[in-house]
Design a binder for these strands. Structure first.
Length: 728
DNA sequence: TCCGGGAGCGC
DNA sequence: AGGCGCTCCCGGA
C-alpha cells in the first residue's frame, strides 16, 4: 500500500501539525499548508496573512474578488469563520486532513505503509442459556486469524485473565495494522476493554504505543488511533448489492455467500465449552468474518491508493467522499470556491414539490403479464457516461433559470452547450449551460475506459483478484458521483449537473423506447424490457448519433442487450425474470423483501417457476402453496426495521410502532435501527416469542398469499384448512 | 374509498 | 448526512 494507514491533525503550541501513521508507528510533521478559508471582507488581526485574490464562487462561477486568509491552526480558522455570517465566508468547513488531500494530492504518498497486515478477531462471553451477555460477563474464548493464517483460539471458562493475556500476546506478535471483526467497533472492542480493565491489564496493544481509543461519531461504536479498526458489519450494512437479504447477521450473510457456517447455540457458551465445541465455533466465526470482509478491505486499499488518501479516511468515508475529492481538487486548479451547499444555492428548488430538487428517471410499465422471451436493452453506466458525454462538472455548469414548457432541447454555441430540461413535476423547463469540458468529465471518462478494460480482461479470464478490486473501486466512484451532485447538503456539488444528466437520460431512453416500438414492456431509468430478441448495436449507433448531432455531445454511450427466457411483469420496478440457465430473479417489493415471511418466499418460488415456464398446472401448484399446514413455525415470522425510536412515530399504529410496543411489553429494549422479528396473531402484532405461535392469525397469512397469487394473475382457491393449532 | 406515513425496494 | 420513483401495507377520516 503506497499510502499511510491514517492521518490526524494536531495542534502543539500554536502550530498546526499532522500525525501520520505508517509502517507501525506515528510521524509528526509540520502541516504542509497553513489552514485557510475565503471571506468577502478582510478579517482583523486573526489570520497569519491575508490577501485579495480572484476566485469563482460556485453559486455564479463568475470571477470575483475574495480575501484568502491563512491561519496558524484550524482552531483559529474556525473561531474567525464562526464570527462571520455563513454567506460571507467560503471553504471554511473542510476538515484539515481532507484539505491537504485536495491541495496536495500526493502529499500522503510520502508516508507509504508498505504491505498491510490484519488480524481478525471474535470474542465469546460467558452465557448460561439466558440470552445476550452484559458488560460484566467474563470473556471465555477469543479467536483470531492473521493474514493467510488458520484461525487460532484460546478457550478457558475458568480463567479469563489467561484468555485475555493470550490475546494480548497474539496482538503484540502480529502487531497488525488492521484490527477487523464483525461488529468489532460496537461489541468486541468495547467488551474487551471493559474486561481488560476489570483485570487491570494494559490495553496499549489494542491501539499501539502512541495511539488511543475513542468514541466514533454517528453511533458507530469506537475507533482506534494507531491501528485501523475495521468493522465488517458496517461494510455489510452499507452494501447495496445485499438488498432483499432477511437480515445482516454474520450467519445469514455467510450463507448468502455460500460459505460453510458452523451453527451453535451461543446463548450457552459454558455448555458449548464443556462439550468442547466452543473453540471450533469461535474460529469459524473469525474465518467467516475474514472471508466476508476481505473484498471490502481490498476495495478500500485500492481506493486509498487511487486517491493517495490514508486508508482510514477511505474506510470511514461516506458516498460523498468521491465527488468531494474529485471535484474539490478541480476547484483548487480552476480557482473555484464553494460558497454554500446545494440547498443554500438553490433554496427555491429544494422547497418545491415536497423538497425534491429535480425530476428523476423515467419509470413506466406499458404491458403486463407473461412474455417469452424478453430482452433488457440498457445503457452501461448511464449517468456517469452522460456526464462524460456532456463534459459537465460543478466547475463549468450553470443554472440559467426556467423557460416555458416544452420538450428536451439542446444547442451548442461556440464552446457552450445549453440544455433545456423538462420538469413535469413543476410544469416548466430548466435551462442549464455547460461551458467547455470539465476535468471531472475527463477523469470519469478515463475511469470508465479503465473499467471496460478490466471487464474485458475478466471476460477473457485473465483478470486477477486485484483487477476485481480495481473494478469494484471504480464502480463505487462512478455510482456515487451523480447522487452527490444533487445532495442538498453537498458543498462541492451542483444540482444543475444532476439536472443535465437526468434530462439527457430521459431523452435518450425515450429514443430507445421509440426504436423498440410495440415490443417495449417496461422502462426504468436506463433500461427498457422488450419482448423478443433484440440486437443492441443499431440502438447504440442511434443514441450516439443523437448525442453527437442533435445534442452536440461526445458519442460515448454503450448499449447492452441481456436476453432472458421469460419475464412476468406486474408493475413498474416489480417483475420476475427467468434466466436462460433456469435461475429466477425477483424484482421489487411486490415480490421480495427483508420484511417478508419465509412462507411468502417459499410459495413464490414454486408458483413463479410454473408461471414463467407457462405450465398448465400453475393453478394446482398455487392452491398447494395456500395450504398453511405445509409450513414450519419460523416460516410465519416477518421482520421490520425501526426507522425511528418507538415513541417518535407520528403514525402510532404503524406496524413498526406496534411491533416496537409489543417488544417493550415482552421486556425487550428497542431503538431506532433495530430489526425485530414478529408475527400476526389473533390479538394483533406480537414479537416472535414461542407463545405467539399458538394463536397465529390464519386469515392474515392466507390473505398475504392470496394477494401474492393475485399479482401472478392467479385466482386463488384455498383448499379446506385444518386449524393451525393442529400441526404447529 | 381515499389519503398519508412508513418501509423497502429499483436504478 | 448520495438522488428520485414506485408499490405495498396499514390505519384513520
Amino acid at each position: 500500500m503506497d499510502v499511510p494507514l491514517a492521518a490526524e491533525r494536531t495542534i502543539e503550541g500554536n502550530e498546526q501539525y499532522l500525525r501520520v501513521w505508517a509502517q507501525g508507528g506515528p510521524t509528526r510533521v509540520e502541516a504542509p499548508i497553513d489552514p485557510y478559508c475565503y471571506a468577502r471582507e478582510p478579517f482583523g488581526h486573526e489570520p497569519l496573512r491575508q490577501r485579495e485574490v480572484t476566485r469563482r464562487p460556485l453559486s455564479t462561477l463568475d470571477e470575483e474578488t475574495w480575501v484568502r486568509a491563512e491561519f496558524a491552526n484550524v482552531r483559529e480558522l474556525a473561531d474567525a469563520a464562526h464570527a462571520r455570517s455563513e454567506d460571507e465566508v467560503a471553504e471554511a468547513h473542510i476538515p484539515f486532513v481532507h484539505r491537504v488531500l485536495l491541495d496536495r494530492p500526493d502529499y500522503y504518498r510520502r508516508f507509504p505503509n508498505g504491505e498491510l497486515s490484519s488480524l481478525h478477531v471474535d470474542i465469546e462471553q460467558r452465557t448460561t442459556g439466558s440470552g445476550f451477555p452484559d458488560e460484566d460477563a467474563p470473556i471465555v474464548s477469543i479467536a483470531w486469524a492473521g493474514d493467510d493464517e488458520a484461525p487460532t483460539s484460546v478457550v478457558d471458562p475458568a480463567d479469563e485473565r489467561a484468555v485475555l493475556e493470550a490475546f494480548l500476546g497474539a496482538l503484540e506478535v502480529h502487531d497488525p495494522d488492521v484490527l477487523a471483526g464483525y461488529n468489532v467497533a460496537r461489541y468486541d472492542l468495547p467488551r474487551l476493554r471493559a474486561r481488560l480493565q476489570a483485570h487491570d491489564l494494559d490495553e496499549t496493544p489494542l491501539h499501539r504505543e502512541g495511539g488511543r481509543i475513542e468514541e466514533a461519531r454517528w453511533g458507530k461504536g469506537q475507533r482506534v488511533v494507531g491501528r485501523l479498526l475495521y468493522d465488517v458489519y458496517d461494510k455489510v450494512r452499507a452494501d447495496q448489492t445485499l438488498i432483499g437479504i432477511k437480515d445482516r447477521s454474520l450467519e445469514t450473510v455467510a450463507e448468502w455467500h455460500g460459505l460453510d457456517v458452523l451453527e451453535a447455540d451461543v446463548t450457552n457458551t459454558v455448555k458449548l465449552a464443556e462439550e468442547g465445541r466452543l473453540a471450533r465455533y469461535n474460529e469459524n466465526d473469525v474465518e467467516l468474518s475474514r472471508q466476508i470482509g476481505q473484498p471490502y478491505l481490498a476495495n478500500d486499499v485500492e481506493l486509498a491508493d487511487f486517491y493517495g488518501a490514508p486508508l482510514q479516511t477511505i474506510a470511514e468515508a461516506t458516498a460523498s467522499f468521491h465527488a468531494r475529492t474529485l471535484q474539490g481538487r478541480i476547484f483548487v486548479e480552476e480557482s473555484v470556491i464553494s460558497d454554500g451547499t446545494n440547498e443554500q444555492r438553490f433554496p427555491d428548488l429544494y422547497e418545491q414539490t415536497g423538497g425534491e430538487g429535480f425530476v428523476g428517471g423515467i419509470v413506466e410499465i406499458y404491458r403486463r403479464g407473461l412474455f417469452r422471451p424478453v430482452t433488457l436493452v440498457d445503457f452501461a453506466s448511464m449517468y456517469p457516461s452522460i456526464l462524460v458525454a456532456l463534459g459537465a462538472g460543478a466547475d463549468n455548469t450553470r443554472y440559467e433559470g426556467t423557460v416555458r414548457e416544452g420538450g428536451f432541447e439542446a444547442h451548442r454555441k461556440a464552446d457552450t452547450l445549453t440544455l433545456r430540461v423538462p420538469d413535469p413535476n413543476r410544469g416548466t423547463r430548466h435551462e442549464v449551460s455547460i461551458e467547455g469540458r470539465s476535468p471531472l468529465a475527463e477523469e470519469l471518462g478515463e475511469l470508465l475506459a479503465y473499467r471496460l478494460e478490466l471487464k474485458q480482461k475478466a471476460r477473457a479470464d485473465e483478470g486477477g483478484s486485484q483487477d476485481t478490486s480495481r473494478q469494484g473501486m471504480i464502480k463505487v466512484i462512478l455510482n456515487s458521483v451523480y447522487g452527490v451532485m444533487a445532495s442538498r447538503h453537498a458543498r462541492y456539488a451542483s444540482l444543475p449537473v444532476a439536472m443535465a444528466i437526468v434530462g439527457t437520460a430521459r431523452h435518450l431512453i425515450q429514443e430507445v423506447e421509440d426504436l423498440l416500438g410495440e415490443a417495449k414492456i417496461e422502462t426504468d431509468t436506463d433500461g427498457v424490457y422488450a419482448e423478443g430478441r433484440i440486437d443492441p448495436d443499431p440502438i447504440e449507433a442511434h443514441v450516439n448519433r443523437v448525442l453527437a448531432e442533435e445534442i452536440g455531445a461526445e458519442p460515448v454511450l454503450s448499449v447492452d442487450a441481456d436476453p432472458f427466457e421469460a419475464g412476468w411483469f406486474h408493475e413498474g420496478k416489480n417483475y420476475l425474470l427467468l434466466h436462460e440457465d433456469g435461475r429466477i430473479e425477483r424484482h421489487g417489493v411486490a415480490f421480495k423483501g427483508s420484511s417478508r415471511a419465509p412462507l411468502f418466499d417459499a410459495a413464490l418460488d414454486e408458483v413463479a417457476r410454473a408461471r414463467l415456464e407457462d405450465r398448465e398446472d400453475v393453478d394446482e401448484i398455487a392452491s398447494q402453496a395456500l395450504d398453511l399446514s405445509r409450513y414450519d413455525r419460523e416460516d410465519f415470522v416477518m421482520r421490520v426495521r425501526l426507522g425511528k425510536d418507538p415513541d417518535a412515530y407520528e403514525a402510532t399504529n404503524h406496524v413498526a410502532a406496534q411491533v416496537a410496543r409489543a417488544a417493550q411489553r415482552r421486556g425487550r429494549e428497542v431503538s431506532q435501527g433495530d430489526q425485530i422479528p414478529y408475527v400476526k396473531t389473533e390479538g394483533g402484532y406480537d414479537v416472535a416469542w414461542p407463545g405467539a405461535f399458538d394463536e397465529l392469525d390464519e386469515d392474515y397469512y392466507l390473505e398475504l398469499l392470496t394477494k401474492l397469487l393475485d399479482r401472478l394473475g392467479i385466482e386463488a382457491r384455498p383448499a379446506d384448512q385444518r386449524s393451525l393449532a393442529e400441526y404447529l
